[in-house]
């Protein structure tokens, strides 16, 4: 099996003085070599937290992993020592972040950080490192790479910055690229260019990509597989075309129904009633979607459905999935 990444039973708690919540309670996700998995879900569903858990870089000290395994090439990253972990970051697994405006250090030239990353991992000399940096800047479609390296972030546009960030993330040819909503802060035309670029990395460099987004349109075009998250859990996962054609989980189906279509005229877009709440806030056990689910029964509020396969690669966590196509 060509499995590169497998996350199992991952639990993350966020503990502040006011309250403690289990923000993530993940059954499992897996990612094959050279594959793109899209992690989709609404704001606060735990997509970014999942990504942060893999590299153990939470934006806040309040988040803590309380259980589970993150297997990367067979080794559990959660048990890796900090120095081993640091050797994996940037070299084996790298990450692109949401906002290119804040993800580059404003007081250093682009080249400074790039060269440090390269020299750290390749042991290349100054000249060689510079060449590598220029190559990867060229790969992401930036003209005049040596000029870019001398620039400061504020001298670049948003699109250019995100390209730079991608170049930094890919410069050591990591096996896994985590893209945490890399296009959210960009306008639509730049978005498609960045998406094209990430796809190119996957196709040409054979990178695996964990793509995090709330934009289902992007997912349908690019991802091989999709995992839908709701309130900290995976509710449905499968091949993208399959999930889109035959969504079985009520949440996924409602989500897809809410996408406006070109040929249909509708006055109001359908919405999912209610708001997302974490299981604990909802009062204990059960499926976290139960409160909003049109198909919910007593069992749904009493027992948490586990992620299980319905057909070969299509898994859902639901007691009452849809049995017919959309």
């Amino acid at each position: 099996m060509n499995e590169l990444l497998r996350v199992e039973q991952l639990r993350v708690r966020i503990e502040t003085r006011e309250r403690q919540v289990t923000a993530l309670d993940l059954d499992h996700i897996s990612l094959q070599k050279g594959e793109m998995l899209a992690l989709v879900g609404e704001t606060g569903s735990g997509k970014s937290l999942t990504a942060s858990s893999i590299l153990q870089l939470f934006p806040t000290a309040a988040a803590r992993i309380t259980g589970g395994r993150v297997l990367f090439n067979g080794t559990n990253l959660l048990e890796a020592s900090p120095s081993v972990m640091n050797g994996i970051r940037g070299k084996e697994i790298s990450m692109i972040f949401q906002d290119p405006m804040s993800s580059l250090n404003p007081v250093f030239r682009i080249g400074k950080v790039m060269l440090e990353i390269i020299r750290r991992y390749t042991g290349a000399g100054k000249k060689q490192a510079k060449q590598l940096a220029e190559e990867s800047l060229k790969f992401v479609g930036l003209p005049d790479p040596s000029g870019i390296m001398r620039r400061y972030p504020h001298e670049l546009s948003g699109g250019q910055r995100q390209r730079v960030a991608i170049a930094m993330a890919m410069v050591c040819k990591p096996k896994l690229l985590i893209a945490d909503e890399p296009t959210t802060a960009l306008d639509v035309t730049i978005q498609s260019q960045i998406l094209y670029l990430i796809n190119k990395l996957k196709e040409e460099e054979g990178m695996s990509v964990l793509f995090i987004t709330h934009n289902l349109g992007i997912v349908s075009q690019m991802a091989d597989r999709i995992a839908v998250m709701y309130a900290g859990s995976i509710v449905e996962t499968g091949r993208t075309d399959e999930v889109f054609r035959f969504p079985r989980h009520p949440y996924t189906r409602l989500l897809l129904d809410a996408i406006p279509r070109l040929r249909e005229r509708r006055d109001r877009l359908p919405v999912i009633a209610g708001t997302a709440v974490l299981k604990e806030a909802a009062g204990g056990q059960g499926c976290s979607f139960a409160g909003r689910c049109p198909r919910a029964t007593k069992r749904c509020t009493a027992e948490k459905p586990q992620l299980r396969a319905v057909v070969s690669s299509h898994e859902i966590a639901c007691f009452h999935p849809w049995e017919e196509e959309r």
Partner: peptide, 17 residues
């Protein structure tokens, strides 16, 4: 607390640097 410092961690730059 800024994002770009967290990003450096993602690139494997050690804490003291």
């Amino acid at each position: 607390g800024e994002e770009h410092i967290r990003v450096l961690k993602a690139y494997g730059i050690p804490a003291w640097r």
